[in-house]
Simulated scan of single mutants.
Amino acid sequence: MSTITVDLATKKYDVKIDNTLHTRIGQEISAVWSTRKIVLLTDNNVGPLYLEDTSRQLRDKGFDVLELVVPAGEQSKSLSVAGDLIGKMASAGFTRGDGLIALGGGVIGDLGGVVASLYMRGIAFIQIATSLTAQVDSSVGGKTAVNLGDTKNIAGSFYQPDLDLVDVTYLDTLTDRDLVEGYAEVVKTSALSDQNFFEFTGQIKSISDIREHAQELSQRAIAYKARVVMADEKEAGERQFLNFGHTFGHAIELLAHGELRHGEAVAIGMVAISSRFEQNGIMPKGMTDELLSRLEAVGLPTQSEFIGTTHFFDRLINDKKNHGGVLNLVALESIGNPVIVKKKIADMPAFMEN
């Protein structure tokens, strides 16, 4: 088993990575938490696969488990759903000494983190990440949020878990599309991290390669993200680098109205921003092609009709990285050397036309 420790000023926790963790959930959680009431939050995709066994393991260790299931998909990341969950917890008599476990992908992790942070001003929180997106990215680092209408991740908090369990055997039940969208975040992280990791993603030529090397991909991606989070927990500096491709990607994802997965939109966003920065001499020639080869090898989309439209620019205005009309965009001077490039939103149409 590989353990990566996230050691912050006010919190220290482990991210455990192993392909047998799903058989030891009760053991791992009882080593971190005393017996208490637990909300086990999942969605109606993951629930039929893993909820019963996970609940049994927790009850066998003496935990009092309340199972809460929400509809799968981005629509569950809302204040109304969060409020409904909080109401059910209050009715069940949950106190500040109890906890919440998010069993699922990025949506459940985000929703669970928001609910845990709000209930009685904060209760204990653990993530069991079942998607590649959650395992390599969203479950690590404490960023939790819900959407408001068409504005993504607008209401949330930095709320670190007490433990993060990453078991790649959960990926066996993902469709190829749901697996591959998470790989976009791996490619992003490899480009930000170093040449060695980037060369490793260059060796991934198929979906079966992702499945075969999932544990190593997760370990490398999590190790990089943990280093960044420990250096900049609240995204005041270098943690902003993790947004590479996300400013454009979030806009595209929202305009697609559910037709694109998050990672698919990020893949498009990375290519779009990289090609513009190459044309402007900020990124070296050929880097966009390097990204394209990795993304297209596994079938990720890399283009969108939404880029450069009026609606696209409208979405940029609501982006969290909009600071008084200026966007902090991420570019790569070279592999492993990301930089922030400030662009006025008013100048974005001209920038996109280049």
Rank of each mutant, 00 (worst) to 15 (best):
T3A: 12
T5W: 01
T10V: 03
D14F: 03
T20N: 13
L21N: 01
T23G: 00
G26Y: 04
Q27S: 13
Q27E: 15
Q27K: 15
I29W: 08
S30Q: 10
S34R: 13
S34E: 15
T35P: 12
V39G: 09
P48K: 10
L49M: 13
L51P: 05
E52R: 15
R59G: 14
R59C: 13
K61F: 13
K61I: 02
G62A: 10
E67D: 14
V70S: 00
G73Y: 06
Q75P: 00
V81M: 15
G83P: 10
D84K: 14
D84P: 00
L85H: 08
I86C: 12
I86H: 05
I86F: 03
A90S: 14
G93Y: 11
T95L: 11
D98S: 09
G109V: 01
G109H: 07
G109T: 10
G112I: 06
G112S: 11
G112E: 09
G113K: 07
V115A: 11
S117V: 04
S117P: 03
S117R: 02
I123S: 06
I123E: 04
A129H: 04
T130V: 10
T130C: 11
Q135E: 13
V136G: 06
V140S: 01
G141Q: 05
K143I: 05
N147S: 07
D150L: 09
K152G: 01
S157G: 00
F158I: 14
Y159F: 15
D167A: 11
D172I: 00
T175G: 13
T175K: 12
G182I: 05
V186R: 08
S190M: 04
N196C: 08
F197C: 07
F197K: 10
F200D: 08
S208Y: 00
D209L: 12
Q215M: 12
L217D: 01
S218G: 00
R220C: 02
R220P: 01
V228N: 06
E235S: 06
F241W: 14
G245V: 08
G245D: 07
H246V: 10
G249Y: 04
A251H: 02
I252S: 00
A256V: 05
A265D: 03
A267I: 01
M270H: 07
I273W: 01
S274N: 06
F277L: 09
Q279I: 04
M283D: 00
M283Q: 14
G286N: 05
T288G: 13
T288S: 13
L295S: 07
A297V: 04
V298F: 11
V298W: 01
T302M: 11
S304T: 09
E305T: 14
F306Y: 15
G308E: 12
H311F: 04
F312K: 04
R315A: 11
N318S: 15
K320H: 09
N322K: 11
H323F: 14
G324K: 12
V326L: 10
V330L: 09
L332Q: 07
E333Q: 15
E333F: 00
E333T: 14
E333M: 08
I335Y: 05
G336K: 06
P338C: 10
V339S: 12
V341F: 09
K343Q: 15
K344T: 14
M352R: 01
M352V: 00
N354R: 13
